[in-house]
Design a protein around this nucleic acid. Structure first.
Length: 469
RNA sequence: GGUCCCAUCGUCUAGUGGCCUAGGACGCUGGCCUCUCACGCCGGAAACACGGGUUCGAACCCCGUUGGGAUCACCA
């Protein structure tokens, strides 16, 4: 029996859950679920000046929408300051950490100088061997890094990565106000929460050897690491607001299904042969770090859009009908809280789902089914609502009023006979009717449209079209 | 600048020394289907960054070059 796998997603609440964070969370979640492990949510809010409760809520909202459920937490680091203090005190007592009285200005000046001389920017160790305190200055606490030897990170994705210890900086673990910094809190928490695998973005790879030294100092076993490659924008720079929407919930607003985003994100860096579309169960079943690539990936909105359209096509019309309601309220097609005939809506959605790439598109197309009247596209009206089509439309209206049942089959018969008696092609009738019904030239099959619309609306719209010619 | 990471079509990727004349997907594009638009189906253009090795044989292994990225905070 091996130990149970425990992983965590540890966002800092200084912004919404963004695409990169969501993917990190997703890979953690997948690894936990694949191995029947435990997924922990930990909020790293030690930067009290930038962290807010609103962002914590936003992150939780995003995770819930994506269906990334956690087993423990959310824990907040601000609730655990005394824990970190104890660990830091222990290091000071053992001489593995020391007080540093250098001022931020002094440090900054030294960094600039090092930069100018082309040297590494690490701390020069000025306060390393200070005998007593410097009066009048509140010191920070620095961790004493080993100055010789190497630290090797054994990474599940990158392989063995070797760092020279002399490159490692004496990092600050306690600020001058006594609050702990990131490098202390992650290690302490990962130790405390018995994290077995640290899965995070590879922007943390350079921090890892320093953290390993901290684990060593505390005498704890080092967890396994997996550093995921970054997500880039189309210009190959790290994905940011400049590249468009980066907040996960912005994708909800744009009409994306969470399953599609999840599928897209997991394929950014991970693959399973040639398969492109996965169910969530398949993802959990197949996931492995062996199939995670090492190279950074460019975020490609077109492919996400295609995946979304696939998920819409493959979703049941009942589900889609439920999901589209908020979008109909938002675009003003229905009133908030207005009752809907869900069976009918579901049928309407069925005619539209394979031509809607997003829920927003679906909701917009639904307008001509639901609204009392349609607005003509000027060009469409000009081209198809003509003298020539007036008689056809009139004949159709006549024939339709006699039809008892508005079914696909019945409607097809009626159209056929009208077309035949007038010696025209189906398209000569279908397009004008389409404009009369939807206002435009693109829509589902005309028989489907009429079936959903029903007799009353169909006849009314035909009359209006004829009158308008 | 120091350190670290990375490198297959425009993009996401398959490929783990012979199955590669390099496969799939998005996008682009030609056609079919057809009452329009989609969906779907069939076809096309499109890549191993470069240079050295190793080997009978290299997209795959090694070295270098080039190019990209990350990081070097009293941020996380």
């Amino acid at each position: 029996m091996t130990d149970k796998i425990r992983v965590r997603f540890a966002p800092s609440p200084t912004g919404h859950l963004h695409i990169g964070g969501a993917r990190t969370a997703l890979f953690n979640w997948l690894y936990a679920r694949h191995n029947n492990g435990t997924f922990i949510l930990r909020i790293e809010d030690t930067d009290t000046t930038r962290s807010t409760d609103e962002y914590i809520e936003a992150i939780i909202e995003g995770m819930k929408w994506l269906g990334l459920d956690w087993d423990e937490g959310p824990f907040r680091q601000t609730d655990r300051f005394d824990v970190y203090r104890n660990y830091a005190d222990q290091l000071i007592k053992e001489g593995r950490a020391y007080y540093c009285y250098c001022s931020p200005e002094e440090l900054e000046a030294r960094r600039k100088e090092s930069m100018a001389q082309g040297k590494s920017l690490k701390y020069n160790g000025k306060c390393r061997d200070l005998k007593g305190p410097v009066p009048g200055i509140k010191p920070v606490v620095r961790f004493r890094m080993p100055v010789a030897g190497q630290t090797i990170v054994d990474d599940l994705i990158k392989g063995m990565v070797t760092f020279e210890n002399e490159q490692l900086d004496d990092l600050i673990i306690l600020r001058s106000d006594g609050t702990p910094t990131y490098n202390l809190t992650v290690v302490v928490d990962d130790v405390d929460m018995k994290i077995t695998h640290v899965i995070r973005g590879d922007d943390h790879l350079n921090n890892t050897p320093k953290q390993i030294q901290l684990y060593n100092a505390f005498g704890y076993p080092v967890p396994k690491f997996a550093h995921l490659p970054m997500i880039l924008g189309s210009d190959k720079a790290r994905l940011s607001k400049r590249h468009g929407a980066t907040s996960v919930m912005a994708y909800y607003d744009m009409g994306y299904l969470p399953e599609a985003l999840v599928n897209y994100l997991v394929r950014l860096g991970w693959s399973y042969g040639d398969q492109e579309v996965f169910t969530r169960d398949e993802l959990v079943k197949y996931f492995s770090f062996e199939n995670v690539g090492k190279a950074a990936a460019v975020f490609n909105p077109e492919k996400l859009l295609w995946l979304n359209s696939q998920y819409i096509i493959n979703s049941s019309t009942d589900k889609l009908a439920e999901l589209v309601i908020p979008f109909l309220e938002k675009n003003g097609v229905i009133e908030k809280g207005q009752g809907m005939d869900m069976a009918w809506l579901s049928k309407a959605v069925g005619t539209l789902k394979e031509r809607s790439k997003t829920m927003v598109e679906l909701a917009n197309s639904l307008r001509y089914y639901i609204a009392e009247d349609v607005e003509y596209n000027e060009k469409a009206k000009e081209k198809f609502l003509t003298e020539k089509s007036r008689d056809l439309l009139a004949a159709l209206k006549e024939a339709l009023t006699a039809v008892p049942e508005f079914s696909h089959h019945e409607l097809e018969q009626v159209f056929k006979s009208v077309v035949e008696t007038h010696g025209v092609k189906l398209k000569d009738l279908a397009q004008p009717v389409r404009v009369a019904m939807t206002g435009g030239t693109e829509s589902p099959g005309i028989f489907e449209v009429l079936e959903v619309l029903g007799k009353e609306k169909t006849v009314t719209r035909l009359e209006r079209a004829i009158k308008g010619i």
